[in-house]
Design a protein around this nucleic acid. Structure first.
Lengths: 261, 261
DNA sequence: GATAAAACTTCATCAGATGAAGGTCTGGTC
DNA sequence: GACCAGACCTTCATCTGATGAAGTTTTATC
Protein backbone atom coordinates (compact mmCIF):
# COMPACT_ATOMS: atom_id res chain seq x y z
CA UNK A 1 0.00 0.00 0.00
CA UNK A 2 1.09 3.49 -0.72
CA UNK A 3 1.14 5.50 2.46
CA UNK A 4 2.42 8.80 1.23
CA UNK A 5 0.10 10.70 -1.03
CA UNK A 6 0.24 13.56 -3.50
CA UNK A 7 1.01 13.42 -7.18
CA UNK A 8 4.52 13.49 -8.53
CA UNK A 9 6.21 16.80 -8.42
CA UNK A 10 5.15 19.10 -11.19
CA UNK A 11 7.00 22.40 -11.26
CA UNK A 12 10.71 22.98 -11.35
CA UNK A 13 12.65 23.26 -8.21
CA UNK A 14 15.84 24.71 -9.49
CA UNK A 15 14.81 28.06 -10.88
CA UNK A 16 16.02 30.09 -7.93
CA UNK A 17 19.31 28.32 -7.71
CA UNK A 18 20.06 28.92 -11.30
CA UNK A 19 19.18 32.56 -10.91
CA UNK A 20 21.51 32.88 -7.95
CA UNK A 21 24.16 30.68 -9.37
CA UNK A 22 25.59 33.32 -11.61
CA UNK A 23 28.10 34.66 -9.16
CA UNK A 24 27.10 34.17 -5.57
CA UNK A 25 28.70 30.76 -5.26
CA UNK A 26 31.88 30.74 -7.30
CA UNK A 27 33.41 27.44 -6.35
CA UNK A 28 32.38 25.85 -3.11
CA UNK A 29 29.24 25.92 -1.02
CA UNK A 30 27.20 24.15 -3.63
CA UNK A 31 25.39 22.20 -1.00
CA UNK A 32 24.59 25.44 0.81
CA UNK A 33 22.87 26.58 -2.35
CA UNK A 34 20.72 23.50 -2.30
CA UNK A 35 19.84 24.04 1.35
CA UNK A 36 18.79 27.62 0.86
CA UNK A 37 16.93 27.16 -2.36
CA UNK A 38 14.91 24.19 -1.22
CA UNK A 39 14.57 25.51 2.33
CA UNK A 40 13.15 28.79 1.17
CA UNK A 41 10.73 27.18 -1.20
CA UNK A 42 9.47 24.88 1.50
CA UNK A 43 9.11 27.48 4.20
CA UNK A 44 7.43 30.01 1.96
CA UNK A 45 4.97 27.39 0.84
CA UNK A 46 6.01 27.08 -2.78
CA UNK A 47 6.46 23.45 -1.99
CA UNK A 48 3.73 22.20 0.30
CA UNK A 49 3.96 19.65 3.10
CA UNK A 50 3.28 16.19 1.81
CA UNK A 51 4.63 17.02 -1.61
CA UNK A 52 7.28 14.71 -2.91
CA UNK A 53 10.56 16.19 -3.95
CA UNK A 54 11.78 15.26 -7.42
CA UNK A 55 13.94 12.20 -7.36
CA UNK A 56 17.62 12.70 -6.71
CA UNK A 57 18.51 12.31 -10.31
CA UNK A 58 16.16 15.07 -11.31
CA UNK A 59 17.27 17.35 -8.52
CA UNK A 60 20.80 16.89 -9.74
CA UNK A 61 19.74 17.98 -13.18
CA UNK A 62 17.56 20.88 -12.09
CA UNK A 63 19.89 22.25 -9.47
CA UNK A 64 22.94 21.79 -11.59
CA UNK A 65 25.05 20.18 -8.88
CA UNK A 66 26.28 16.70 -8.20
CA UNK A 67 24.53 14.02 -6.22
CA UNK A 68 26.75 14.57 -3.21
CA UNK A 69 25.76 18.20 -2.94
CA UNK A 70 22.09 17.33 -3.29
CA UNK A 71 22.28 14.63 -0.68
CA UNK A 72 24.17 16.80 1.78
CA UNK A 73 21.68 19.59 1.32
CA UNK A 74 18.73 17.29 1.76
CA UNK A 75 20.28 15.88 4.90
CA UNK A 76 20.66 19.34 6.39
CA UNK A 77 17.02 20.12 5.70
CA UNK A 78 16.01 16.77 7.12
CA UNK A 79 17.96 17.74 10.23
CA UNK A 80 15.79 20.82 10.50
CA UNK A 81 12.68 18.71 10.21
CA UNK A 82 11.71 20.01 6.79
CA UNK A 83 12.25 16.86 4.79
CA UNK A 84 12.15 13.15 5.26
CA UNK A 85 13.60 10.72 2.84
CA UNK A 86 12.97 7.03 2.76
CA UNK A 87 14.53 4.40 0.64
CA UNK A 88 12.42 3.50 -2.33
CA UNK A 89 9.72 5.95 -1.33
CA UNK A 90 11.40 9.19 -2.23
CA UNK A 91 11.89 12.37 -0.27
CA UNK A 92 9.03 14.52 0.82
CA UNK A 93 8.18 17.58 2.76
CA UNK A 94 7.25 16.92 6.33
CA UNK A 95 4.19 18.45 7.97
CA UNK A 96 4.66 21.89 9.38
CA UNK A 97 4.48 20.67 12.97
CA UNK A 98 7.72 18.83 12.46
CA UNK A 99 9.68 21.82 11.33
CA UNK A 100 12.19 23.42 13.63
CA UNK A 101 10.46 26.76 13.42
CA UNK A 102 12.98 28.25 15.80
CA UNK A 103 15.94 27.31 13.67
CA UNK A 104 17.70 30.47 12.52
CA UNK A 105 17.62 29.41 8.88
CA UNK A 106 13.98 28.46 8.98
CA UNK A 107 13.10 31.74 10.64
CA UNK A 108 15.13 33.58 8.09
CA UNK A 109 13.40 31.94 5.17
CA UNK A 110 10.09 32.74 6.73
CA UNK A 111 10.62 36.36 7.57
CA UNK A 112 13.28 37.63 5.24
CA UNK A 113 11.03 38.30 2.28
CA UNK A 114 9.38 40.84 4.52
CA UNK A 115 6.74 39.96 7.05
CA UNK A 116 3.18 39.53 6.05
CA UNK A 117 0.53 41.33 8.11
CA UNK A 118 -0.28 38.26 10.16
CA UNK A 119 3.37 37.87 11.01
CA UNK A 120 3.43 41.34 12.49
CA UNK A 121 0.72 40.40 14.94
CA UNK A 122 2.47 37.12 15.62
CA UNK A 123 5.70 38.82 16.52
CA UNK A 124 4.05 41.48 18.60
CA UNK A 125 2.22 38.80 20.58
CA UNK A 126 5.42 36.88 20.97
CA UNK A 127 7.14 39.84 22.49
CA UNK A 128 4.24 40.46 24.83
CA UNK A 129 4.35 36.85 25.90
CA UNK A 130 8.08 36.62 26.31
CA UNK A 131 9.68 39.90 27.21
CA UNK A 132 7.95 40.83 30.46
CA UNK A 133 8.72 37.42 31.88
CA UNK A 134 12.30 37.68 30.73
CA UNK A 135 12.62 41.08 32.37
CA UNK A 136 11.29 39.58 35.58
CA UNK A 137 13.83 36.78 35.58
CA UNK A 138 16.54 39.25 34.65
CA UNK A 139 15.63 41.34 37.68
CA UNK A 140 15.84 38.23 39.82
CA UNK A 141 19.08 36.92 38.46
CA UNK A 142 21.08 39.75 36.96
CA UNK A 143 24.66 40.02 38.14
CA UNK A 144 26.92 43.02 37.82
CA UNK A 145 27.92 42.17 34.27
CA UNK A 146 24.33 41.77 33.19
CA UNK A 147 23.34 45.09 34.68
CA UNK A 148 26.29 46.78 33.08
CA UNK A 149 25.24 45.37 29.73
CA UNK A 150 21.77 46.78 30.15
CA UNK A 151 23.07 50.16 31.18
CA UNK A 152 25.36 50.35 28.22
CA UNK A 153 22.57 49.36 25.88
CA UNK A 154 20.36 52.00 27.43
CA UNK A 155 23.00 54.64 26.90
CA UNK A 156 23.28 53.61 23.28
CA UNK A 157 19.54 53.90 22.98
CA UNK A 158 19.61 57.49 24.14
CA UNK A 159 22.55 58.25 21.93
CA UNK A 160 20.86 57.04 18.77
CA UNK A 161 17.37 58.41 19.29
CA UNK A 162 17.80 60.73 16.33
CA UNK A 163 18.97 58.12 13.89
CA UNK A 164 16.18 55.72 12.97
CA UNK A 165 18.35 52.90 11.66
CA UNK A 166 20.86 53.04 14.48
CA UNK A 167 18.02 53.28 16.95
CA UNK A 168 16.55 50.03 15.71
CA UNK A 169 19.80 48.23 16.30
CA UNK A 170 20.23 49.86 19.70
CA UNK A 171 16.71 48.87 20.61
CA UNK A 172 17.33 45.26 19.62
CA UNK A 173 20.56 45.35 21.60
CA UNK A 174 18.80 46.68 24.68
CA UNK A 175 16.23 43.96 24.67
CA UNK A 176 18.94 41.43 24.03
CA UNK A 177 20.83 42.73 27.03
CA UNK A 178 17.80 42.11 29.21
CA UNK A 179 17.61 38.53 28.06
CA UNK A 180 21.32 38.12 28.53
CA UNK A 181 21.00 39.38 32.08
CA UNK A 182 18.57 36.59 32.85
CA UNK A 183 21.55 34.26 32.92
CA UNK A 184 19.51 31.78 30.94
CA UNK A 185 21.09 30.79 27.68
CA UNK A 186 17.93 29.19 26.36
CA UNK A 187 15.99 32.34 27.02
CA UNK A 188 18.66 34.41 25.36
CA UNK A 189 18.57 32.19 22.33
CA UNK A 190 14.84 32.50 22.17
CA UNK A 191 15.25 36.24 21.94
CA UNK A 192 17.94 36.03 19.35
CA UNK A 193 15.55 34.17 17.18
CA UNK A 194 12.84 36.65 17.69
CA UNK A 195 15.25 39.36 16.77
CA UNK A 196 15.95 37.70 13.46
CA UNK A 197 12.31 38.16 12.68
CA UNK A 198 12.03 41.54 14.38
CA UNK A 199 14.78 42.99 12.30
CA UNK A 200 12.78 42.24 9.20
CA UNK A 201 9.81 44.13 10.63
CA UNK A 202 11.83 47.15 11.46
CA UNK A 203 10.47 49.10 8.55
CA UNK A 204 7.11 48.75 10.17
CA UNK A 205 8.17 49.72 13.67
CA UNK A 206 10.24 52.62 14.68
CA UNK A 207 10.23 55.11 11.90
CA UNK A 208 9.34 58.35 13.57
CA UNK A 209 12.07 60.02 15.57
CA UNK A 210 9.75 61.75 17.99
CA UNK A 211 8.12 58.42 18.57
CA UNK A 212 11.43 56.79 19.37
CA UNK A 213 12.07 59.36 22.03
CA UNK A 214 8.74 58.61 23.62
CA UNK A 215 9.83 55.06 24.26
CA UNK A 216 12.95 56.07 26.13
CA UNK A 217 11.36 56.58 29.55
CA UNK A 218 9.81 53.13 29.37
CA UNK A 219 13.15 51.53 28.61
CA UNK A 220 14.71 53.54 31.37
CA UNK A 221 12.17 52.18 33.82
CA UNK A 222 12.96 48.65 32.75
CA UNK A 223 16.66 49.18 33.26
CA UNK A 224 16.15 50.82 36.60
CA UNK A 225 13.92 48.08 37.92
CA UNK A 226 16.35 45.37 36.87
CA UNK A 227 19.24 47.25 38.36
CA UNK A 228 17.37 47.31 41.65
CA UNK A 229 16.17 43.72 41.33
CA UNK A 230 12.53 44.78 41.43
CA UNK A 231 11.18 41.89 39.46
CA UNK A 232 7.61 43.06 39.69
CA UNK A 233 8.40 46.51 38.38
CA UNK A 234 10.72 45.20 35.73
CA UNK A 235 8.02 43.00 34.38
CA UNK A 236 5.43 45.75 34.37
CA UNK A 237 7.74 48.27 32.77
CA UNK A 238 8.68 45.81 30.07
CA UNK A 239 5.09 44.93 29.51
CA UNK A 240 4.30 48.54 28.92
CA UNK A 241 7.12 48.82 26.40
CA UNK A 242 6.05 45.82 24.38
CA UNK A 243 2.36 46.63 24.62
CA UNK A 244 3.05 50.04 23.20
CA UNK A 245 5.08 48.43 20.45
CA UNK A 246 2.26 46.03 19.74
CA UNK A 247 -0.28 48.83 19.54
CA UNK A 248 2.00 50.74 17.20
CA UNK A 249 2.54 47.72 15.02
CA UNK A 250 -1.15 47.04 14.74
CA UNK A 251 -1.89 50.63 13.94
CA UNK A 252 0.84 50.71 11.32
CA UNK A 253 -0.38 47.48 9.82
CA UNK A 254 -3.88 48.88 9.70
CA UNK A 255 -2.68 52.08 8.09
CA UNK A 256 -0.81 50.10 5.50
CA UNK A 257 -3.91 48.10 4.85
CA UNK A 258 -6.05 51.23 4.51
CA UNK A 259 -3.54 52.78 2.19
CA UNK A 260 -3.58 49.63 0.16
CA UNK A 261 -7.37 49.48 -0.11
CA UNK B 1 48.92 32.77 9.63
CA UNK B 2 47.06 30.15 11.50
CA UNK B 3 43.83 31.58 12.82
CA UNK B 4 42.31 28.53 14.38
CA UNK B 5 44.08 27.26 17.45
CA UNK B 6 44.14 24.11 19.55
CA UNK B 7 46.26 21.08 19.06
CA UNK B 8 45.28 18.26 16.78
CA UNK B 9 42.59 16.04 18.07
CA UNK B 10 43.81 13.62 20.67
CA UNK B 11 41.17 11.20 21.88
CA UNK B 12 39.03 8.94 19.82
CA UNK B 13 35.73 10.10 18.54
CA UNK B 14 34.25 6.84 17.50
CA UNK B 15 33.97 4.91 20.71
CA UNK B 16 30.29 5.54 21.23
CA UNK B 17 29.36 4.72 17.71
CA UNK B 18 31.16 1.46 17.82
CA UNK B 19 29.45 0.59 21.05
CA UNK B 20 26.10 1.33 19.51
CA UNK B 21 26.91 -0.07 16.16
CA UNK B 22 26.40 -3.65 17.14
CA UNK B 23 22.75 -3.84 16.36
CA UNK B 24 21.02 -0.50 16.61
CA UNK B 25 21.60 0.44 13.01
CA UNK B 26 21.34 -2.68 10.90
CA UNK B 27 21.52 -1.28 7.42
CA UNK B 28 20.68 2.34 6.85
CA UNK B 29 20.89 5.50 8.94
CA UNK B 30 24.64 5.42 9.14
CA UNK B 31 24.82 9.15 8.78
CA UNK B 32 22.33 9.51 11.61
CA UNK B 33 24.74 7.60 13.77
CA UNK B 34 27.43 10.09 12.94
CA UNK B 35 25.13 13.01 13.74
CA UNK B 36 24.12 11.66 17.10
CA UNK B 37 27.49 10.47 18.19
CA UNK B 38 29.32 13.65 17.32
CA UNK B 39 26.42 15.87 18.33
CA UNK B 40 26.18 14.35 21.75
CA UNK B 41 29.89 14.58 22.33
CA UNK B 42 29.92 18.21 21.35
CA UNK B 43 26.91 19.27 23.35
CA UNK B 44 27.97 17.42 26.47
CA UNK B 45 31.36 19.02 26.26
CA UNK B 46 33.44 15.94 25.55
CA UNK B 47 34.57 17.84 22.52
CA UNK B 48 35.09 21.50 23.33
CA UNK B 49 34.41 24.52 21.14
CA UNK B 50 37.47 25.39 19.12
CA UNK B 51 38.64 21.81 19.01
CA UNK B 52 39.37 20.46 15.58
CA UNK B 53 37.62 17.32 14.52
CA UNK B 54 39.80 14.54 13.20
CA UNK B 55 40.26 14.75 9.47
CA UNK B 56 37.65 13.07 7.33
CA UNK B 57 39.83 10.12 6.64
CA UNK B 58 40.28 9.45 10.31
CA UNK B 59 36.62 9.96 11.10
CA UNK B 60 35.85 7.42 8.46
CA UNK B 61 38.16 4.96 10.17
CA UNK B 62 37.02 5.70 13.70
CA UNK B 63 33.34 5.82 12.99
CA UNK B 64 33.44 2.84 10.73
CA UNK B 65 31.39 4.40 7.96
CA UNK B 66 32.15 5.73 4.54
CA UNK B 67 33.05 9.27 3.63
CA UNK B 68 29.58 10.04 2.37
CA UNK B 69 28.04 9.22 5.70
CA UNK B 70 30.62 11.25 7.55
CA UNK B 71 30.17 14.23 5.28
CA UNK B 72 26.40 14.14 5.46
CA UNK B 73 26.53 13.90 9.22
CA UNK B 74 28.98 16.76 9.50
CA UNK B 75 26.80 18.86 7.24
CA UNK B 76 23.78 18.28 9.43
CA UNK B 77 25.71 19.36 12.50
CA UNK B 78 27.03 22.36 10.65
CA UNK B 79 23.40 23.20 9.87
CA UNK B 80 22.72 23.24 13.57
CA UNK B 81 25.63 25.58 14.15
CA UNK B 82 27.75 23.01 15.96
CA UNK B 83 30.48 22.60 13.39
CA UNK B 84 32.18 24.59 10.72
CA UNK B 85 34.35 23.06 8.08
CA UNK B 86 36.71 24.94 5.85
CA UNK B 87 38.73 23.67 2.99
CA UNK B 88 42.29 22.95 3.92
CA UNK B 89 41.73 24.05 7.48
CA UNK B 90 39.70 21.14 8.73
CA UNK B 91 36.45 20.97 10.62
CA UNK B 92 36.06 22.35 14.06
CA UNK B 93 33.57 22.94 16.77
CA UNK B 94 31.99 26.34 16.73
CA UNK B 95 31.64 28.50 19.83
CA UNK B 96 28.64 27.81 21.96
CA UNK B 97 26.95 31.07 20.97
CA UNK B 98 26.59 29.77 17.45
CA UNK B 99 24.77 26.63 18.41
CA UNK B 100 21.08 26.32 17.74
CA UNK B 101 20.34 25.66 21.38
CA UNK B 102 16.65 25.41 20.63
CA UNK B 103 17.07 22.69 18.06
CA UNK B 104 15.29 19.56 19.26
CA UNK B 105 18.34 17.39 18.75
CA UNK B 106 20.65 19.80 20.52
CA UNK B 107 18.24 20.07 23.41
CA UNK B 108 17.96 16.34 23.54
CA UNK B 109 21.70 15.82 23.67
CA UNK B 110 21.90 18.38 26.41
CA UNK B 111 19.15 17.15 28.66
CA UNK B 112 18.68 13.49 27.92
CA UNK B 113 21.49 12.21 30.10
CA UNK B 114 19.46 13.63 32.95
CA UNK B 115 19.55 17.24 33.94
CA UNK B 116 22.26 18.60 36.11
CA UNK B 117 21.27 20.75 39.09
CA UNK B 118 21.91 24.00 37.28
CA UNK B 119 19.67 22.85 34.46
CA UNK B 120 16.82 22.41 36.85
CA UNK B 121 17.04 26.03 37.86
CA UNK B 122 17.42 27.02 34.24
CA UNK B 123 14.26 25.26 33.23
CA UNK B 124 12.28 26.50 36.18
CA UNK B 125 13.29 30.07 35.34
CA UNK B 126 12.42 29.50 31.75
CA UNK B 127 8.93 28.45 32.66
CA UNK B 128 8.50 31.41 34.96
CA UNK B 129 9.62 33.69 32.17
CA UNK B 130 7.56 32.12 29.45
CA UNK B 131 4.39 30.54 30.70
CA UNK B 132 2.60 33.43 32.38
CA UNK B 133 3.03 35.53 29.28
CA UNK B 134 1.84 32.69 27.10
CA UNK B 135 -1.23 32.26 29.28
CA UNK B 136 -1.94 35.94 28.89
CA UNK B 137 -1.76 35.80 25.13
CA UNK B 138 -3.81 32.64 25.15
CA UNK B 139 -6.50 34.44 27.12
CA UNK B 140 -6.43 37.23 24.57
CA UNK B 141 -6.48 35.09 21.49
CA UNK B 142 -7.98 31.71 22.30
CA UNK B 143 -10.74 30.59 20.01
CA UNK B 144 -13.27 27.84 20.70
CA UNK B 145 -10.93 25.09 19.60
CA UNK B 146 -8.14 26.37 21.79
CA UNK B 147 -10.40 26.57 24.82
CA UNK B 148 -11.73 23.11 24.15
CA UNK B 149 -8.17 21.82 24.02
CA UNK B 150 -7.40 23.34 27.38
CA UNK B 151 -10.57 21.97 28.93
CA UNK B 152 -9.83 18.50 27.69
CA UNK B 153 -6.30 18.68 29.00
CA UNK B 154 -7.60 19.86 32.34
CA UNK B 155 -9.99 16.95 32.51
CA UNK B 156 -7.13 14.58 31.78
CA UNK B 157 -5.16 16.20 34.55
CA UNK B 158 -7.89 15.49 37.06
CA UNK B 159 -8.29 11.99 35.74
CA UNK B 160 -4.66 11.07 36.18
CA UNK B 161 -3.93 12.70 39.52
CA UNK B 162 -3.37 9.32 41.10
CA UNK B 163 -0.94 8.02 38.54
CA UNK B 164 2.38 9.86 38.73
CA UNK B 165 3.63 8.97 35.26
CA UNK B 166 0.38 9.65 33.51
CA UNK B 167 0.03 12.86 35.46
CA UNK B 168 3.33 14.13 34.15
CA UNK B 169 2.22 13.61 30.58
CA UNK B 170 -1.16 15.17 31.30
CA UNK B 171 0.54 18.13 32.90
CA UNK B 172 2.81 18.63 29.90
CA UNK B 173 -0.23 18.34 27.66
CA UNK B 174 -2.13 20.94 29.65
CA UNK B 175 0.63 23.47 29.39
CA UNK B 176 1.02 22.67 25.74
CA UNK B 177 -2.68 23.31 25.23
CA UNK B 178 -2.28 26.76 26.71
CA UNK B 179 0.49 27.57 24.28
CA UNK B 180 -1.52 26.11 21.44
CA UNK B 181 -4.42 28.34 22.37
CA UNK B 182 -2.24 31.38 21.92
CA UNK B 183 -2.57 30.87 18.19
CA UNK B 184 1.13 31.55 17.87
CA UNK B 185 3.06 28.76 16.28
CA UNK B 186 6.41 30.15 17.33
CA UNK B 187 5.29 30.30 20.92
CA UNK B 188 3.97 26.79 20.72
CA UNK B 189 7.24 25.58 19.33
CA UNK B 190 9.10 27.29 22.10
CA UNK B 191 7.06 25.30 24.57
CA UNK B 192 7.56 22.06 22.74
CA UNK B 193 11.23 22.52 23.11
CA UNK B 194 10.98 23.27 26.76
CA UNK B 195 8.92 20.16 27.15
CA UNK B 196 11.69 18.06 25.66
CA UNK B 197 13.83 19.22 28.51
CA UNK B 198 11.04 19.16 31.07
CA UNK B 199 10.27 15.56 30.39
CA UNK B 200 13.80 14.68 31.36
CA UNK B 201 13.36 16.47 34.67
CA UNK B 202 10.17 14.70 35.49
CA UNK B 203 11.84 12.46 37.99
CA UNK B 204 12.62 15.57 39.95
CA UNK B 205 9.20 17.16 39.72
CA UNK B 206 5.90 15.57 40.36
CA UNK B 207 6.48 12.47 42.33
CA UNK B 208 4.07 12.76 45.22
CA UNK B 209 0.45 12.07 44.46
CA UNK B 210 -0.90 14.33 47.19
CA UNK B 211 1.28 17.03 45.83
CA UNK B 212 -0.08 16.60 42.34
CA UNK B 213 -3.56 17.11 43.65
CA UNK B 214 -2.56 20.34 45.26
CA UNK B 215 -1.67 21.77 41.89
CA UNK B 216 -5.08 21.06 40.41
CA UNK B 217 -6.84 24.20 41.64
CA UNK B 218 -4.12 26.35 40.19
CA UNK B 219 -4.47 24.73 36.81
CA UNK B 220 -8.19 25.07 37.05
CA UNK B 221 -7.85 28.79 37.63
CA UNK B 222 -5.65 29.10 34.57
CA UNK B 223 -8.17 27.30 32.41
CA UNK B 224 -11.05 29.31 33.78
CA UNK B 225 -9.35 32.62 33.20
CA UNK B 226 -8.45 31.74 29.63
CA UNK B 227 -11.95 30.51 28.96
CA UNK B 228 -13.25 33.88 30.08
CA UNK B 229 -10.52 35.81 28.29
CA UNK B 230 -9.29 37.34 31.51
CA UNK B 231 -5.73 37.86 30.42
CA UNK B 232 -4.67 39.41 33.70
CA UNK B 233 -6.02 36.56 35.76
CA UNK B 234 -4.71 33.94 33.38
CA UNK B 235 -1.25 35.33 33.68
CA UNK B 236 -1.36 35.50 37.45
CA UNK B 237 -2.79 32.04 37.83
CA UNK B 238 -0.14 30.60 35.55
CA UNK B 239 2.54 32.47 37.35
CA UNK B 240 1.45 30.90 40.58
CA UNK B 241 1.55 27.45 39.03
CA UNK B 242 5.06 27.81 37.67
CA UNK B 243 6.36 29.60 40.74
CA UNK B 244 5.16 26.71 42.86
CA UNK B 245 6.84 24.32 40.46
CA UNK B 246 10.02 26.32 40.66
CA UNK B 247 9.98 26.31 44.44
CA UNK B 248 9.39 22.56 44.43
CA UNK B 249 12.18 21.98 41.99
CA UNK B 250 14.64 24.00 44.00
CA UNK B 251 13.64 22.26 47.19
CA UNK B 252 13.98 18.87 45.53
CA UNK B 253 17.34 19.80 44.09
CA UNK B 254 18.49 20.92 47.50
CA UNK B 255 17.27 17.73 49.12
CA UNK B 256 19.10 15.71 46.54
CA UNK B 257 22.19 17.71 47.25
CA UNK B 258 21.85 17.21 50.98
CA UNK B 259 21.32 13.52 50.54
CA UNK B 260 24.39 13.43 48.42
CA UNK B 261 26.62 15.27 50.88
C1' DG C 1 65.10 38.60 7.56
C1' DA C 2 61.55 39.29 4.20
C1' DT C 3 59.24 37.73 0.35
C1' DA C 4 57.68 34.82 -3.29
C1' DA C 5 57.02 30.38 -5.09
C1' DA C 6 56.43 25.46 -4.54
C1' DA C 7 54.62 21.68 -2.02
C1' DC C 8 51.31 19.88 0.92
C1' DT C 9 46.78 19.33 3.52
C1' DT C 10 42.19 18.91 3.77
C1' DC C 11 37.69 19.75 2.53
C1' DA C 12 34.32 20.05 -1.78
C1' DT C 13 32.34 17.91 -5.41
C1' DC C 14 31.66 14.70 -9.08
C1' DA C 15 30.90 10.09 -10.90
C1' DG C 16 30.02 5.22 -10.98
C1' DA C 17 28.85 0.91 -8.61
C1' DT C 18 26.51 -1.82 -5.30
C1' DG C 19 23.00 -2.64 -1.95
C1' DA C 20 18.74 -2.36 0.72
C1' DA C 21 14.07 -1.31 1.42
C1' DG C 22 9.65 -0.69 -0.18
C1' DG C 23 6.22 -0.51 -3.52
C1' DT C 24 4.02 -2.48 -7.83
C1' DC C 25 2.66 -5.76 -10.92
C1' DT C 26 1.68 -10.40 -12.55
C1' DG C 27 -0.03 -14.97 -12.27
C1' DG C 28 -2.00 -18.44 -10.15
C1' DT C 29 -5.22 -20.36 -6.67
C1' DC C 30 -9.53 -20.91 -4.49
C1' DG D 1 -13.70 -11.99 -8.46
C1' DA D 2 -10.78 -11.74 -4.15
C1' DC D 3 -6.53 -12.95 -2.38
C1' DC D 4 -1.77 -14.15 -2.05
C1' DA D 5 3.18 -15.25 -3.40
C1' DG D 6 6.88 -13.92 -5.81
C1' DA D 7 9.36 -11.54 -9.43
C1' DC D 8 10.45 -6.95 -10.64
C1' DC D 9 11.33 -2.12 -10.34
C1' DT D 10 12.04 2.35 -8.29
C1' DT D 11 14.57 5.23 -5.28
C1' DC D 12 17.35 6.32 -1.61
C1' DA D 13 21.85 4.77 1.15
C1' DT D 14 26.43 3.99 1.14
C1' DC D 15 31.09 3.05 -0.55
C1' DT D 16 34.98 4.19 -3.36
C1' DG D 17 38.13 6.58 -6.30
C1' DA D 18 39.32 10.78 -8.82
C1' DT D 19 39.66 15.66 -9.45
C1' DG D 20 39.53 20.37 -7.87
C1' DA D 21 39.87 24.38 -4.81
C1' DA D 22 41.45 26.90 -1.03
C1' DG D 23 44.31 27.58 2.46
C1' DT D 24 48.89 26.38 5.11
C1' DT D 25 53.41 25.39 5.50
C1' DT D 26 57.89 24.95 3.75
C1' DT D 27 61.55 26.23 0.94
C1' DA D 28 64.29 28.97 -2.04
C1' DT D 29 66.00 33.33 -3.16
C1' DC D 30 67.53 37.85 -2.66
Amino acid sequence: MKVWSAEPHSGRVGAVIEAEAGRAYPGGARHGRVVHSLGRQIVTGELAPGDPLPVEERLVAELGVGRSAVREGVKVLAGKGLLESRTSAGTRIRPRESWSLLDPDVLGWRFEPGPRPEDVRLLADLRVALEPGAARVAAERADAAGIRGIDEALAALYATADDPDAFIEADLAFHRAVFAASGNDLLLHAYEMISIALRSVRHVHTRVVSHNKETLPGHERVALAIRRHHHRKAEEAMREVVEVARADAERTAMDAKDAHD
